[in-house]
Design a protein around this nucleic acid. Structure first.
Length: 354
DNA sequence: AACGCGGGGCT
DNA sequence: AGCCCAGCGTT
């Protein structure tokens, strides 16, 4: 299908040896550490994930320590990293490995793929890096490097694209050092063959990169357009009851921030003032058992919290009550709960003295 | 096959 | 404002 440049893999690995970053998970073959790093790095830059990797290794030196932790504690440690299903699957897999596999990780692609939170990419990464298996990884970097070098216009976010690139990567992999090859192609994509304004004139492949020769680098890889971003309107009720207590609720069910905590939320279809807020059924239900003293608006200008797929226009309403209420916690304990960054930012500003 | 899921950095 | 990031699970 594609004509393989004979020296592609060797050149890539040579570049990697010279240019790779020293990262903690590159100094070990411990499958637990490799697995942890790969879960953290899913859709996450090294710079953002690195401190979390260090925190987790310190808190849970062995997979048994992670398996024995409470889920709330794991989520708290994951706070701020996003895609929180990763943390729940991480915890579930640690338990499974300890309870059903005697604490030993699977050592091959097929069995690794059975673990929760481990898909094609991660199974290939662990198999190749920790166990030297010739399983090619295809992540965002690999799509970019290969689509450019071979000038492949197949959209990468289609089944056909995934299949084509996986097959090509599998043909290119250096079977003598598959883990090194996989890390090399990803590192090259992350550090040199970058999405915008790559330095093609000085690239080691500028004599063989088809997209460079055709002046088509800026149009690759091809990706099908994403859906437009949805706008939502959040009104958080920050209860202040006697003795410096407040109220948190855990998010359940589908949607964003599963299992994380937040203040009681009234979602509206548009921005609302106090009058319309108090007319909402949800609001009235919530206030039924509360003796409310005053309600004041913390931020007139909504805080717009941006997620990949939705923008949350948010206002915080301060609700002071006249008594001690049920289901409240000391404000000084709020810091122990896993909360979305949107809530964490508000808490650190509003409750800074607690 | 399409969709939902975070937060941050860079242009 | 838009794009991307060592993707995965669900529908």
């Amino acid at each position: 299908m594609h004509k393989i440049a004979p020296n592609f893999s060797k050149k890539l690995i040579a570049w990697y040896i010279q240019n790779k970053r020293e990262l903690p998970w590159r100094k070990t073959k411990n499958p637990y550490h490799i697995w942890l790093s790969e879960i953290i790095l899913q859709q996450t830059r090294v710079a953002q994930g690195l401190p979390y990797f260090l925190k987790f290794i310190e808190a849970y030196p062995q997979v048994e320590n992670l398996a024995n932790a409470r889920e709330d504690e794991v989520l708290k440690l994951w706070q701020g990293l996003g895609y929180y299903s990763r943390a729940r699957n991480l915890h579930a897999t640690a338990k499974m490995v300890c309870q059903e596999m005697n604490g030993v990780f699977p050592d091959n692609y097929k069995d690794l793929l059975k673990l929760k939170g481990v898909g094609d990419y991660t199974a290939s990464a662990i198999a190749s890096i920790a166990f030297n298996q010739p399983e090619a990884v295809v992540d965002g970097n690999v799509y970019r490097v290969l689509s450019r070098f071979f000038e492949i216009n197949t959209p990468i976010n289609t089944t056909a694209g995934q299949k084509e690139f996986k097959q090509l990567a599998q043909q290119l992999i250096d079977i003598d050092e598959p883990g090194t090859f996989n890390q090399a192609i990803m590192e090259f994509g992350a550090r040199y063959c970058v999405p915008q304004n790559p330095d093609c004139n000085n690239c080691i492949f500028n004599d063989s990169c088809k997209a460079f020769q055709q002046k088509n680098v800026d149009h690759l890889p091809v990706k099908i357009k994403a859906k437009p971003i949805k706008k939502r309107f959040f009104n958080y009720l920050v209860v202040l009851s006697k003795n410096e207590h407040t109220m948190l609720q855990q998010r359940t069910g589908k949607g964003i921030w599963q299992q994380l905590y937040q203040f009681p939320l009234i979602e509206t279809s548009e921005e609302v003032n106090l009058r319309s807020l108090t007319k909402h059924t949800q609001f009235q239900t919530f206030c039924k058992n509360l003796q409310i003293d005053t309600i004041s608006l913390f931020n007139e200008t909504p805080i717009v919290h941006k997620l990949s797929h939705q923008h949350l226009s948010t206002r915080f309403w301060i609700v002071e009550t006249l008594e001690e209420n049920e289901n409240t916690i000391p404000i000084s304990n709020v810091k122990d709960y896993a909360v979305p960054v949107l809530i964490a930012d508000f808490v650190s500003e509003f409750f800074e003295n607690y």
